[in-house]
Design a protein around this nucleic acid. Structure first.
Lengths: 211, 211
DNA sequence: CATGCCAATGAATAGTCGTTCATTCATTGG
DNA sequence: CCAATGAATGAACGACTATTCATTGGCATG
């Protein structure tokens, strides 16, 4: 079926956003131009300004697309956390290293924007929203687990901040050194972190080697 | 004293590299141009091609400058690790969050280049060298500590990879959310991670609140 | 089938940036 | 003090890229 020449705006927008993700992942943000995105999408140059007003608009919407996707996925983990904080934290780890969430293409986009977020208020706002909801959830879960699980010596904020940072660092490894970091290994490291912090609630994952 | 119009090449090169770091930190990599760097250094545009052949050369040398600085600092920690693995790991944490090493300007440069390293073989090589020496040191220290300290259930590679990732994540926090992350807090989180992994060798750092 | 609408095109435009190079001038040796 | 050297300059050039807009052509309507 020959693709319809005119498509609903929402469809075109997503088509262009996905092309942008592929371009940033394949060429880098610096070499992602209107021309490369349009070519990647199989459309003409002019269409980007038609649908997004400017290149900046396209990039902003691309970031928001990823942020929304992440936030939607977070809701499930939040639900799990209602029932039990430990289950919620496990769900967060599962989420962060789910194939769809930390696909290399998407990680490349996240880090490309992270490098620029200090200088673009719009990027900063979108990233800050995501951080806030993520960090907030993890903090609440850690705090509740400390209370309910009787961990008087554990500082829940410290553990929460550590988990957030650990996750970001593992994402970076997944992006830049895929040969020595996998989603499975990243999960094991994260769960091991939680097991050390909350030994009564997390079982040590099985060791890597033969067993 | 009016600055000498002609300076030794090494001096000019460093002057330009430091200007580049400030530009990347203040404007972002995308808005760091030959013109902004030259102006920041108080010199003319042409001088960059004179000393570095190309803009790419300047950026590469800037990255190498930071990598060398980091690697030099690592040597001290390595020495401490010879005597005792635990002391070596502590030294690594101290090092990573030393004011000079994780100054915000420098972190901005690191992350700007990390976003591009997938696409520039030269950046990738420089970063990979740094990673290799860092990760190698941490791995060796963790392995030795596991043996000598009698931690049969601890997977040293897992702890080492976790510490590397945690450090990267904390650096990211220091860069993009300085209001909620400090060098002191980052150190506490890292040491707390080590204390959980190797409880016999690391004392829990004092809690954050009033004591 | 004829018509009007508007998504989509892509060539043209304007602006930016990296690079070049003829020129200037501080410094050094005689 | 004069001449030679080469570091440093900055205007000019060429390449590239985001944006614009006159034109094209698919699609719905009557």
């Amino acid at each position: 079926m020959p693709r319809r020449r005119t498509a609903p705006p929402e469809e075109r927008r997503e088509q262009l956003i996905l092309a942008t993700i592929r371009c940033v992942a394949n060429f880098g943000l610096a070499d992602t131009t209107i021309a490369t995105v349009a070519q990647e999408a199989g459309l003409s140059q002019g269409i980007i300004n038609l649908h997004f007003q400017s290149k900046e608009g396209l990039l902003t919407e691309t970031l928001r697309y990823l942020a929304d996707e992440y936030r939607t996925a977070c809701q499930d983990a939040a639900a799990a956390g209602e029932a039990s904080p430990a289950a919620g934290l496990t769900a967060m780890v599962e989420l962060d290293f789910r194939r769809n969430i930390c696909a290399r293409d998407k990680l490349a986009v996240w880090f490309a924007f992270w490098g620029e977020r200090k200088f673009r208020p719009t990027y900063r706002r979108i990233c800050a929203e995501r951080d806030k909801s993520y960090d907030g959830m993890v903090r609440v879960m850690c705090a509740r687990l400390c209370e309910q699980g009787d961990y008087p010596d554990v500082d829940p904020a410290l553990v929460a901040d550590g988990l957030s940072a650990l996750t970001d660092g593992l994402w970076l490894d997944l992006l830049v050194r895929p040969e020595s970091m996998s989603r499975e290994l990243a999960k094991r490291i994260s769960l091991s972190y939680l097991a050390d912090a909350f030994p009564k609630h997390f079982r040590q994952p099985p060791p890597a080697g033969k067993g």
